[in-house]
Write a protein that binds this DNA or RNA. Sequence first.
DNA 1: ACAAATTTTTAGACAAAACTAAAAATTTGT
DNA 2: ACAAATTTTTAGTTTTGTCTAAAAATTTGT
Lengths: 218, 218
Amino acid sequence: MTLSEEDYIKAIYHLGKGNNTTVSTNAVAEKMDTKPSSVTDMVKKLSEKGVVNYKKYKGVSLTEYGQKLALTLVRKHRLWEVFLVEKLDFSWDEVHEVAEQLEHIKSEKLIDRLDKHLGFPQVDPHGDPIPSKKGEFKKAIKKLLNEVPIGISGICVGVKDSSGPFLKFLDKNKIALGDTITVLDKEEFDGSLHIQIQGRKIHISNQIATNLFLKITE
Amino acid sequence: MTLSEEDYIKAIYHLGKGNNTTVSTNAVAEKMDTKPSSVTDMVKKLSEKGVVNYKKYKGVSLTEYGQKLALTLVRKHRLWEVFLVEKLDFSWDEVHEVAEQLEHIKSEKLIDRLDKHLGFPQVDPHGDPIPSKKGEFKKAIKKLLNEVPIGISGICVGVKDSSGPFLKFLDKNKIALGDTITVLDKEEFDGSLHIQIQGRKIHISNQIATNLFLKITE
DNA sequence: ACAAATTTTTAGACAAAACTAAAAATTTGT
DNA sequence: ACAAATTTTTAGTTTTGTCTAAAAATTTGT
Ligand SMILES: [Mn+2]
Ligand SMILES: [Mn+2]
Ligand SMILES: [Mn+2]
Ligand SMILES: [Mn+2]
């Protein structure tokens, strides 16, 4: 597959939300930042190659083979993201663009060895699960911190309240996007939470917990 | 620069032996495994861009700017080779093809961080020097082991005698291409050498030393 | 020096991946 | 149901990088 074909496959995969829904030409065009007519051309070619199912005017979905390719690309993308953050000290928000290039490097051995070098990570720096070599992986779901059960870990991926005071609070308490958070205990009385964040144990109010999104893989 | 343009720049650089000799269209075509007519087209384009000096029928050489680009590419290529060997346990003869792809990844930060992660290596797994960020580097020369002065190190890059018995000898004594060898002492009497190879200290005859090539950077 | 051999360039074509403009199909709203 | 709006496809170009065949320039050998 060419670099361009691979990016289309990934786009169709992500738009299909992993469960391989049929997606529209326009949706793909928007995601890829290209024109619908270009998508039609590419989708015809991918159909010829057995990568997608395509019926004129009826949208496009991945074949079994296409899904296999998509999962391999997602695996490569996320492993490289882990590498950039863990080994090269990139921050979680700097990695995407570079991984977007690295995911296209062709070498199965490279990916196997990278996986090993990284200690076979299960999730990427954004909390998204990394498919195994065979294409198996857990689904990730986004939850408010106060809804996360005791004992479960996740990665902080967003805030509900993005007001200045709240963001300032997070900064002061060293809570940042990309941090790994584990719910240790909950207080019945006021709904406050004891959590572990990046190794540290802290106590936060229910109000804070209802404004932080965690990505957890089950 | 596109991937293709970058590969042409590298080819012109390597054919010019680093001292920026003018090279012929045919030579570039052979190196790139393409046709001379394709080279003419590309060289015209690179000339437009100020990357090469080109006069019809008179060959091509890199401009100052082109040399800068070439050195950056060589730096990236060799750093990735070090990464593959040092961090991912590739052997020295498996890295070239993958580095040929990785060298085109666009991110200055990536290369800076990779350099740091690898401990600012001076040479790649083939004994070739790695240009600094500013494009400075030492020249590498190939010498027979018996001509290497005491105290100097190099990387084993080839054999003069490639007969079965000699190769078998090397194998038995665990001397392999890619090994780092330091000359510790020489015996006047018989020309034999005390060397350190991959950490081990051994004693080898003059006959062995006259059949092993070392790449040394000065 | 000059014909022959070789190298290099030109001309014309093609495939990949994109675009614009226009046509066709589908969906939506009343 | 059917006209209008929207989506999607088609047709025709463009750019990049390649190719073949033929023409032009240079180099070589006598
Ligand atoms: Mn990509
Ligand atoms: Mn990610
Ligand atoms: Mn390359
Ligand atoms: Mn090398």
